[in-house]
């Protein structure tokens, strides 16, 4: 590995998620309509953490789900088929405000696949997107509503998100390949 630069430390990740939680609360008056849905696999732990922060802010629990997009990807024929993780939705999403949560926003193709997958389960009133890192280089007209940190990157670089839930420590690194 040639270079590895710390983009977000443990405390920076914490601060970013707390801020995003407050931004979600600020944007959504109808707190009982909000569902957090993490995109498998990177977004699920972040959705759980945001849910805990929002529960404190709103003084009520927030439904949390997970969605897998491997059946909806547009690059299916080009890649080794990814492991299919469970899709678990806590309730009917029709009429709700869904906040999709992912770790890294890059080309936008995962988000597109997630939007497509969501429509198989119902018709949300609105969908918002929260990401820990936006690394630019979009290939589709998609943007995030809530962003932990904007990082300008080159396609040959990689963003490594490590979280305690996965057995590592909380950190985001920019890695040159």
């Amino acid at each position: 590995m040639q270079g590895k630069k710390l983009v977000l430390s443990e405390s920076a990740i914490h601060r970013a998620l707390v801020r995003i939680a407050h931004e979600i609360a600020e944007r959504n008056d109808q707190s009982s309509d909000v569902i957090l849905i993490g995109i498998q696999k990177g977004g699920t732990h972040l959705a759980a953490r945001l849910g805990a922060f929002l529960a404190k802010i709103w003084s009520h629990s927030v439904p949390i789900g997970a969605i897998d997009v491997s059946m909806h990807r547009d690059d299916f024929s080009a890649q080794i088929p990814g492991q299919v993780h469970p899709t678990t939705l806590p309730c009917d999403i029709t009429g709700k405000t869904v906040v999709l949560v992912d770790d890294v926003l890059y080309s936008g193709r995962t988000t597109r696949a997630a939007l497509d997958a969501l429509t198989d389960y119902g018709r949300p009133k609105s969908v918002q997107l929260a990401v820990l890192v936006d690394r630019g280089n979009r290939e589709l007209p998609i943007r995030a509503d809530f962003i932990g940190k904007n990082v300008s990157t080159h396609p040959k670089e990689r963003i490594n998100v490590s979280l305690t839930e996965e057995g590592g420590e909380d950190a985001v690194h920019l890695v040159a390949l």
């Binding site: 059946m71 690059d75 299916f76 024929s77 080009a78 890649q79 080794i80 088929p81 299919v84």
Partner: peptide, 9 residues
């Protein structure tokens, strides 16, 4: 069907 039709190394 999913596994055999996906891309591969």
């Amino acid at each position: 069907l999913y596994l055999v039709t996906g891309g591969r190394g």
